[in-house]
Design a protein around this nucleic acid. Structure first.
Lengths: 350, 350
DNA sequence: GCACGACATGAGAGCGCTCTCACCGTCTTT
DNA sequence: AAAGACGGTGAGAGCGCTCTCATGTCGTGC
């Protein structure tokens, strides 16, 4: 298939040293005379030697690979470059530490079982998981595998319970929502509605909490509280529901905070269909700063941005740290969950 | 790290047979008495045995893994779920054949070198590559690695030249473009402009060719031929250029075929800014059927759809076939490039 | 009834690497 | 000047698996 692969042995012979010495040089272990080290390096280059990872893994019991598990990719991966960006951050960080990225996309129930077996089989050193729902079996699978795991987004409590030292990277959804709603208050909006995502996802419930935080003591009118499902269509319907519930213009919400940009896009559509002007009649704020939704829309969307790529980097970093390959800060504080800041981006819709 | 991993040896002892027999059972090799086979299987289950792939790979010289290499992901991966969908198709097919998916995203020049070394190192059995530009070094790297490779999209000739039996999966861009432009002709449009993508990508040049095909003998006015870069901004500028070049309403194009939906979105924006109505004044057709661009836009976009997920499946299938793990059609025709059909989707913009 | 082939099983070598441990030469210490 | 300490190097034992080959055990044909 592929050409001749020189072995350690061959390099050793070429350099006139032992296998052990070549191994030390290749792995950067200290304790080889500089002179010898150079000679070995020259031989490695001359022969085009590349270590056989299978052999290495066999003895070290490490694979140098981590699995990235993404559950139910149909849900978000499509209209949303979220995972793609996160993957970029992850890929970059892992590559910098010579760690391979094994991608596993779970689509069906049967896939979960496969993954469980795979992880337990010790084919990877750790996992990065994106589990979207609170009742997702992924945290349990991760726990059962015994592999160090970092989650993208704070997992629901059912998983957290079993794994007290659970590691995750999340964005500060609550604060982001707070910023969004405060912004609407500052703009003088009085009746601020919310369109939530599925509340069995922490991102959705945290954003709702932030909305409630900002509104403070004033118990919000339940008529201003609509449920969506993080899709455009769901946002459109939720907006329609909100408008239908208000008898007259006075009761109508003068602002809407949507749990994500997709739903905000749907809300914009409904408002346009009903002949309402944005932001004059109703201000709209989204969440995610999803390029297609936020900047291509008319008007462009005020929304909350999170540094998704950075979150990917942090996830990988956290995992590498736990694997003991964390770079400089080896003996620093033990790895802990990270929450990254969110930032309001004001555009035309508010 | 993870619990006890029973070895083949342990299973053999438990079942009272030799290592070789257990190996045969585990790998489904013929020639074991059914009775023994069952006994071994029971022991495997009882001990929770999972083969150590490192050890297996070491002797078989196969890794059971395939690298998916995506070059310059910043370009498209962001606003475009293209790769995410293709990955889904790939992942599904590979999983069905117990093959792992190693994802490598290339961002910098240095990454290419890293990948080259990695592939040459024999860490994977084959590669799936997405190389976007004709002068991309990826085909050369693939050739140098000697690994079976399947490309996503037809690579430019410079790579194809060196590898005569090159394998790829592409969509029929030329025919898709032909359909789009014929549709505009059928709608009675007379001055049909084109906004091309970067012509060093076969997808862009093929689409231009399709446009020219449909227009036939009538040499198109060079003033109707604008260059874009597959981005929204580029499309907006190209549209502006087209409008600026036409002295009066009579000379103005009455239709635009954009090389992708992103550019079509940009074109829509420019038309709106100039006070032109779509499709009344100018009809617009895009390409890709990118959900955010095509269905969320106002008006929704007539565009050309390709089954991206299916393309991913086909790519993986082709590679597995070449690796001799192709399922049923082992001894059928040798694997060959596949071109999948494109289909016009008519919506509001034309 | 005996040679032979077909089939099932086990013994054992070895894949390429890491890592422990023994060795050796050089330097310090008493 | 002898004894120890120490850093550099090599020898060799495996890691868990597959696969070839030898061995054993039948069934078949003459």
């Amino acid at each position: 298939m592929h050409g001749d692969h020189p072995t350690l042995e061959a390099v050793a012979a070429h350099a006139g040293v032992s296998r052990a010495t070549v191994s030390r040089v290749v792995n950067g272990t200290a304790g080889v005379r500089p002179e010898l080290r150079e000679r070995v390096k020259a031989s490695v280059a001359a022969l085009g030697y590349v270590p056989n990872i299978a052999a290495r893994n066999l003895v070290t019991r490490r694979t140098g690979a981590v699995a990235v598990v993404i559950a139910e990719p149909e849900t978000r991966v499509f209209a949303d470059p979220f995972f793609a960006r996160q993957l970029r951050g992850i890929s970059r960080t892992l590559a910098a530490h010579d760690t391979q990225l094994l991608l596993m996309l779970l689509e069906q129930r049967a896939d979960y079982e496969r993954i469980g077996r795979y992880l337990t089989g010790g084919h990877v050193d750790g996992t990065l998981m994106f589990s979207l729902h609170n009742d997702d079996p992924l945290p349990a699978i991760a726990a059962a595998s015994g592999l160090p795991t970092v989650f993208g987004g704070r997992p629901g409590w059912s998983g957290a319970e079993r794994q007290p030292d659970i590691l995750y990277v999340d964005t500060d959804n609550r604060d982001g929502a707070r910023q969004a709603v405060r912004h609407l208050l500052e703009r003088g909006r009085k009746r601020i509605a919310v369109i939530t995502g599925p509340l069995d996802q922490t991102s959705a419930s945290d954003r709702l909490d932030g909305y409630l935080d900002a509104l403070g003591a004033e118990a919000p009118d339940p008529g201003l509280h609509a449920h969506g499902d993080f899709t455009v269509e769901g946002g459109a319907q939720a907006m329609a529901w909100l408008l239908d519930r208000s008898p007259g213009p006075a009761a109508r919400p003068d602002a809407v905070f949507a749990g994500n940009d997709l739903m905000a896009t749907g809300a914009l559509r409904t408002l346009r269909d009903r002949g309402l002007r944005v932001p004059d009649d109703v201000a709209v704020v989204g969440y995610d700063d999803l390029e297609p939704a936020a900047t291509w829309s008319e008007p462009s969307l005020t929304t909350v941005r999170q540094d998704v790529e950075r979150m990917g980097e942090l996830m990988a970093g956290l995992l590498l740290q736990r694997l003991g390959r964390g770079g400089a800060s080896e003996d620093d504080a033990p790895p802990a969950p990270v929450v990254t800041p969110a930032r309001l981006v004001v555009r035309g819709s508010s």
